[in-house]
Design a protein around this nucleic acid. Structure first.
Lengths: 221, 221
DNA sequence: CAATCGTCAAGAGCAGTGCTCTCGTTTTTT
DNA sequence: AAAAAACGAGAGCACTGCTCTTGACGATTG
């Protein structure tokens, strides 16, 4: 009964998020729509930020699941297809849920601190991307340029990232990071309106950018 | 006298922006700090959104000016140096003014529509980047890979972008766009907290990513 | 069976917000 | 000098997140 109500609250909140954005999320409006009084919401979510946290975690999981499913539909050895499928899944989800995407990959909500619970859900999408890079590397399918070499001082940081793509050498790790930035940078541009009046064939342009990004970490197109 | 007061309002607002973020921008708080009554602010800015617009335009100009100055200090033929200087200028400014950066390159403020006045200021930074690519290409300094070729249907969009880098062929235009996405995607990750507990040597990692991005559009490192 | 305890919704209330309107005063323009 | 425009102050409206108290219901325990 309680679980049912909390789910209903998040559903309504998500709908408000889609129409009014993160700033327009109002506990009183949610309560109004549920026929409850505003203070009753606080029985389920101690504060507005806690409701936001729930929405953010849901967002991470929804995006991660979309990416996982799209990538899982590809043959394991078709590395480029897997990369394209995962990338397009990110973009498709972001375009379909721009406000939720803004919540998790846009500017941080002021005064809001993400609790530790979010950390596992947050990595689902990038875990998929890392696995593709690792599989491709271990299959001998990556042939990145040899230069430039990463500077020595970032070796420790590469070690952290390698958790997502075991067995991949440092230079490829950094190239994969750059491709990751290309992917999400492009999606940010599109979702946040930077392409308005400039790029109209959004899908084709993104697809080409994805292929360029694949080539950047050595995945032949 | 009027210009003086409007400048004071934007200054105080910018300071509040730096501490509380865009959502915490309060007209009443600005008025309080100026010793005025809240309604008096409306003599200078008809609404909160108009104040936001002024801050956004200021942000575009501040970022654009920082990039222009950093790039102008490099010899015209040192294309890689110009690229690195401009890229680091973007990152330095973004790290120094995270909330202002979020205002112009982060999630759009809900319900806020950027008026046409912003369009010239908005392009100052990317104009610099485009000029570097164009200069390098016209000097014969770019040697990008031939594949993959951009699909035919995005040719019209490339035409729009070529306004920023005249004389550059389509495939290089799209490679420059991808590098642009890499640059700003990386800065977004860093400023918006995606690198927390992962990448600590921020400057060195970004510098390497910048060099990878330069190589992506054919600028040898 | 009855008393108690914990959970819940309701309502009032506080401090804050953006914004509007009116009312005198001041400054500028005609 | 007279008319007009600009200005600051104040009150007020509808809204927000959040807290506190009150009363009702239902399950658990004596």
């Amino acid at each position: 009964m309680r679980a049912e109500l909390t789910r209903e609250i998040t559903d309504i909140a998500r709908r408000q998020l889609a129409t009014d954005g993160a700033g327009g999320l109002s506990l009183r409006a949610v309560a109004r729509e549920m026929g409850m009084v505003s203070s009753a919401i606080y029985r389920y979510f101690p504060s507005r930020d806690d409701l936001l946290t729930a929405l953010i975690i849901d967002g991470y999981n929804a995006l991660g699941e979309a990416v996982e499913q799209a990538e899982a539909a590809c043959p394991r050895t078709a590395h480029l297809d897997r990369w394209l499928a995962a990338g397009h899944a990110v973009r498709d989800w972001a375009v379909a849920h721009p406000h939720e995407y803004a919540l998790i990959y846009g500017s941080p909500v002021p005064g809001y601190q993400a609790p530790q619970d979010t950390v596992v859900a947050r990595l689902r999408d990038v875990t998929v991307l890392g696995a593709i890079v690792a599989d491709a590397w271990n299959a001998g399918a990556l042939h990145p340029p040899a230069t430039p070499e990463p500077p020595a001082e970032v070796a420790a940081d590469a070690e952290n990232i390698r958790a997502l793509m075991s067995g991949v050498p440092d230079d490829v790790v950094w190239r994969a990071m750059a491709s990751w930035a290309t992917l999400y940078g492009w999606v940010n541009f599109e979702v946040f309106g930077q392409f308005n009046n400039t790029i109209e064939r959004r899908w084709a342009a993104f697809d080409h950018a994805l292929r360029l990004a694949a080539g950047e970490f050595g995945l032949a197109t």
